[in-house]
């Protein structure tokens, strides 16, 4: 019962989280910033706007991206198989990438290209993370992982690698080249408008839920540790966002793939032999 309520209000929680993050970011930049409910005000405004459909597939793929992401979040909350979750999440990214390729806009194409490259960089880390959880807990089921104790110590290197994935998914500096507001004007988002953009906007909020729920898996059954991890990583990600510029796709892939893969493989090898 509680689970289904959580699933239904997941986008709302995501929106609040996003709004809170905007407040925090504004404070970090020493300015007043928007109110907490700004994402929802934006939402109402977007609903009022006239919606253009560039082509039906583009719009449908955008909506599918949102729905799949919601299902992903639902699976995590229900404690389903972690591998399913990760591949389903990949599917939702693929929907977005296809949507980007289905229109004529150059920015959208470049955005899709970058999104694809970014998926290439972070997906191996997510999969290795799942493998790591399996090796520690003996199961891919999230429910089982949640029942076991905290695995952050034995999966510490993977945790570090996962920290690099978070800015990519949440579009934060230094790894926000996929969105790159100033270069490609939001990339894949550019051709969405009105209520259809709203789906993308809500998908962004769900992305927050997804990322932080996965993060809390590292804490296992220790809820306090989970909350501590969430607060710490939330602050860290925003602080790094406020201390770095956006780096190029080339560097992003070198760093995330090179460093992340190394960290992940070291951790897995360690788990297998120690």
């Amino acid at each position: 019962m509680i689970e289904s309520i959580f699933i239904i209000i997941a986008p709302i929680i995501g929106g609040l989280l996003y709004g809170f993050e905007r407040v925090v970011r504004a404070r970090m930049q020493n300015r007043q910033g928007p109110p907490l409910l700004q994402p929802f005000y934006d939402m109402f405004k977007l609903i009022d706007k006239q919606a253009f459909i560039v082509n039906p597939y583009h719009t449908i793929l955008g909506v599918m991206h949102f729905i799949t992401l919601w299902i992903v979040v639902a699976f995590i909350i229900m404690g389903q198989n972690l591998l399913y979750v990760i591949f389903l999440h990949l599917l939702s990214s693929i929907f977005l990438i296809l949507a980007g390729f289905s229109v004529k806009s150059v920015y959208s194409h470049i955005g899709s290209n970058r999104e694809l490259l970014a998926a290439l960089a972070y997906e191996p880390i997510l999969i290795m993370m799942a493998v790591g959880f399996f090796m520690v807990n003996g199961s891919f089921d999230i429910a089982v992982i949640r029942e076991h104790g905290a695995s952050i110590v034995s999966l510490f290197l993977l945790f570090l690698a996962y920290l690099m994935v978070i800015p990519i998914k949440l579009k934060k500096s230094p790894f926000d080249a996929t969105e790159a507001h100033q270069e490609i004007v939001g990339g894949v988002e550019i051709e969405f408008s009105g209520i259809f953009f709203e789906f993308l906007y809500m998908a962004k909020w769900l992305e927050y839920i997804f990322v932080y729920l996965l993060l809390m898996l590292f804490a296992g059954d220790n809820i306090l540790l989970g909350i501590g991890l969430f607060i710490g990583v939330f602050l860290l990600v925003n602080l790094v966002d406020n201390a770095t510029a956006r780096i190029k796709m080339k560097h992003l892939i070198t760093i995330v793939l090179g460093l992340g893969l190394t960290l992940g493989i070291c951790n897995l090898i360690g788990l297998a032999y120690v």
Binding site: Q29, N30, R31, S173, D176, H181, Q182, D241, A245, R246
Partner: peptide, 16 residues
């Protein structure tokens, strides 16, 4: 220049 390089905090800092 900082803002276009994706460094929003620096932009706000200098503007402030």
């Amino acid at each position: 220049t900082c803002e276009n390089a994706g460094f929003e905090a620096m932009f706000m800092r200098i503007m402030g």
